[in-house]
Design a binder for these strands. Structure first.
Lengths: 205, 205
DNA sequence: ATAATATACTAACACATGTTAGCAATGATT
DNA sequence: AATCATTGCTAACATGTGTTAGTATATTAT
């Protein structure tokens, strides 16, 4: 018996308003998160996307480019939000809370990208690496400046601002269970817990 | 002109009471910290040790064994300390402070190992992987239990204990500048800052 | 229908990786 | 001095890696 298999060529499935490259970048995010950038191979990624490894190169330039996209995508969102927060005329505690809430939201809605950007940026190579590190430093400096302003008008306890920033950022960025809290209730509960502990701990009362 | 170079064979230098394997494990720690487990090659490690790659295998079984040693070395220290803390008859806040202080001390004195154990355990393979994950879970459970006891006798704010634990652990484990604070003053200042913010934030007052 | 563009495939490359085999040099023990 | 165990070296392996070349197929525009 002779059987003819008529195979059609694979194709990257896209939804309205998403390029194929975006699909690849997105799958790369979850792969890099799961295995780490170095341990995740282009063949792994190809399989996740449903295509042969070489086909990926019709859409991207290199594996490292994927890391660029992820890291700077996240960094830009954080930077823009910082611009916003600084431009508003809130008191310091309110600003800090806004920064924390934004960060938590990013963790919930873009978990993989934020996680990767936070843990795998070391594997960037050098024009990008220093650029990224600079952005990181800047963000922290601006965050610390807000806390310091709050300390000056007695809104916030007289603590070391840079240390407080590191604590806050790592506390939020470290939670591994964001993606598990699919139910909105869990996420909300987690959020308010974090706000209580982190922001509440700063207040001068 | 004929010149004879009389080369002596390289040798791993050891100090009193340290095996050559310990030297390798220790160098592996700083290499894995710097580049990540996957990105650090055995040839890199060999160079750091001052020997050819193949020679390493006279002392170790595999690259993964190095990760085992590091991860379980750290895990055991933390577990034993938890035993100690639990056995003492302190109040909850004192216990929490002891755990935090120990963790900070580990970060200062064994930075590379603790860092690697915290970030690279994913690359363990399976009898070890689940074992390690279990120990992690257990440690956090016991930490949370201490906080919960504190909440019950009104020592500690009515917060979500597991969340508090994650915040504390990630806040401490995330600081990248432990190794830079070589001067004891910096380390002490950083420590007291962390205690103020983290432990102070829990207190019910 | 035809031409042009986008996207996929197969095959292969050059290179880095962890690891082993076999042998040479060194150090310790007798 | 002779013996034996340690520890190092060179060479090589098998495998996995990112990536490219060249070509076939599908989609879009003419």
């Amino acid at each position: 018996m002779l059987v003819y298999y008529l195979r059609t060529m694979a194709r990257i499935k896209i939804e309205k308003n998403t390029s194929r490259k975006e699909v690849i970048v997105s799958k790369a995010a979850s792969l890099f998160r799961e295995k780490g950038f170095k341990a995740a191979s282009m063949r792994d990624l190809a399989e996740a996307v449903g295509v042969e490894a070489a086909s990926l190169y019709n859409h991207i330039k290199s594996k490292t480019e994927l890391l660029h996209e992820l890291c700077f995508g996240v960094a830009n969102r954080f930077m823009h939000h910082m611009d916003e927060v600084e431009s508003k005329k809130n008191n310091s505690i309110a600003k800090v809370e806004e920064l924390v809430r934004f960060h938590i939201n990013e963790m919930i809605n873009h978990y993989e990208e934020v996680y990767v950007s936070d843990r795998e940026w070391k594997h960037l190579s050098d024009p990008y690496l220093s650029n990224f590190q600079n952005q990181r430093r800047m963000y922290r400096k601006r965050f610390a400046a807000i806390i310091e302003a709050g300390i000056r008008n007695k809104e916030i306890k007289a603590i070391d601002a840079p240390t407080a920033v590191l604590i806050i950022l790592h506390a939020i960025g470290g939670i591994e269970s964001w993606h598990r809290s699919t139910q909105k209730i869990d996420a909300d509960a987690l959020t308010s817990n974090m706000i209580t502990i982190l922001v509440g701990g700063l207040k001068n009362d």
